[in-house]
């Protein structure tokens, strides 16, 4: 069965690149435009992995990660976050919030897929 990925990013172009890459690889993709928007997908359905940006309006990436970790159904799913190299200090914070790993922007599709397959083992 195809794995389901939830993408959360406030930038449409980034969403599209990630979406395109993942759908091409046969993933089922859900798309949220910010943390708050993403929460609506966490309604009990099966989600195998979450990929989220950190800087977003309404509910930012860290907030989303914390929220997800509080949900019984999603406590253990892998969460990757997107970050730029200049935000390295955020990584520790994100790990403490419960992130599983990160992907540095800019990334090539292969790197994205590798990061996902790594946590979806």
């Amino acid at each position: 069965m195809a794995k389901t990925v939830l993408i959360v990013d406030d930038s449409e172009s980034i969403r599209e690149v990630v979406n395109f890459t993942l759908q091409n690889e046969g993933y089922d993709v859900l798309v949220g435009v910010d943390g708050e928007d993403a929460l609506k997908f966490l309604d009990g359905r099966t989600i195998d992995i979450v990929i989220t940006d950190l800087h977003m309006p309404n509910l930012d990436g860290l907030g989303l990660i914390r929220k997800i970790r509080e949900m019984d159904a999603y406590k253990h799913i892998p969460i990757l976050f997107l970050t730029t190299e200049s935000q390295a200090s955020k990584k520790m914070e994100a790990k403490q919030a419960g992130a599983t790993g990160w992907i540095i922007k800019p990334f090539v599709p292969a790197k994205l897929l590798s990061a996902i397959s790594r946590v979806l083992r």
Partner: peptide
């Protein structure tokens, strides 16, 4: 931040 990240991406 979006401009920077996206700029590098694209």
């Amino acid at each position: 931040h979006s401009l920077k990240g996206g700029g590098a991406m694209f």
